[in-house]
Amino acid sequence: MRNSAENSPNSSASSLKKHILPVLSKRVGSAIEGALIYGLEPLEEIRLRAEKPLILQNYYKEWFIGADGLLSSKPSGSFLVSQEDIRLSLEMMSENSIYAYQDEIRNGYITIKGGHRVGLSGRVVLEGGAVRNIKDISGLNIRLSNQIPGCSFKLLPYLFRNSSDIYNTLIISPPQCGKTTILRDIAKTLGTGASEYGFKGVKVGIIDERSELAACMKGIPQNDVGIRTDVLDGCPKNIGMPMMIRSMSPAVIITDEIGNDGDREAVQCVLNAGVRIVTSAHGYNISELKSRREVLKLIEDKVFERYVVLGNRNGPGTLVEVIDGSTMKPITGAGVNAF
């Protein structure tokens, strides 16, 4: 555990104190603060479920908070979360302004300061077949976003075409394998430049639909995403990509989790403008991705020149293979940890 904390020079400990504990109900916040003196970094998830034990999860295992206030691995007799805790926490997460977060709540999550995403479950209120609201929220899943500088360095050489151009790239990864973290680091490296590889920085445009990549507060990225990077925060990808191209003339567009309706046209629009794209998709390998219509079309169009497959064999962000998009042959297949 200690070892892993040293391996990942991230800011999750300070971010936990600064962004997450203040938005939890006092009872839960102080319980976590008390228990974490004994070190549990990097945390990946904090789960609050009504009438159920509080669960803290890092990469290795899940933890409860025992009756003595210390971390324990057994759920029996551990700290229970009440519905009131969840209600209070949600109120603080939305800064007492549910109305400002209503679109996000409809999608089932809100993004809090620091770019951490909080998933919600509860009773869904429907209107005309569409989700209007989620009420009686009974479950919160706080996913800590970790910024890990340099985590994309092992895969970057496969992305560079020359000193100021890159290949169109799709990052394929199962959930919780560091997709967003790697994408964020790629944005930073492309925007700032990497003298190690002789790569000059280029203009980067991020379409940050879920405010996870750049974690903007009042429009200013809280995460380091590079010095030549513009961020369109909270904008749907299919609208944001053409918008960004017209307005900010980027050389590279970066966006997370592609594959919804309309994404294909937007990507085509990016390519027609001569702009490169780096994006990601949920999946374990390419053949699985092909079952998704919108992504399959993009693969058939030979949009992407590089496919980067991530796994978690050696921890999140393990580089499984890099595939050449034109030949569909692997360029590398080393099971090395990209972090």
Binding site: E91, N96, I98, Y99, Q102
Partner: peptide, 10 residues
């Protein structure tokens, strides 16, 4: 009702 409902309610 301040802050506790969606925009229409506000």
């Amino acid at each position: 009702m301040l802050g506790s409902t969606e925009l229409d309610g506000q």
